[in-house]
Amino acid sequence: MGVKAEPWQTAEIAGPKKALLILKPEVVVAMVKRAKRPILIVGHLAAEDYSDDVKMIDYAIRMSRTATIPVVATAHMTTEFIKRGFQPAGWMPAMDIGNRLKDPEWKGLDGTGPYDLAMFMGLPYYMEFVILAGLKHFSKGLKTISLDRYYDPHASWSFPNLSVKDWNEGFKIILSKLGEK
């Protein structure tokens, strides 16, 4: 894995407060295990990136099933999930889920309470960048993780910029340590 905390899109500079680097996949595992109410938000690029063999959506489904994490599909991603025999917990525009996660009064998709960990993958980089910025500044008690293979400085935690191979291997470790069988 690389170790530089550089935004993937060169000019998307953030700070002073920037995401901590996920240098070991175990960090994600620990965050998920520690979270009481995690949620996974999956954008449309998850069905396209990163290669013919490695699609983020498949990892999202495996992660959701392994760790019992509800998935919110943004854009038209429900179609892709359903194609794969997976029913997301909800679907809504990325801006809407961002807006709700910002609200400490929101009771979540199941009406039982706010989430304490939001993980993102598959949104256009710049869109995820600004949504995570909104959450960094305006949410209360919410940690965020960018699970894409790009460093997103507005998350609480983010992978550095990774090759597809490194991302793939890292995610396999995450799934394994979360208890995937």
Partner: peptide, 9 residues
């Protein structure tokens, strides 16, 4: 408004 700060400063 849902603010999406493009810049933190």
């Amino acid at each position: 408004p849902f603010y999406l700060p493009f810049c933190d400063v």
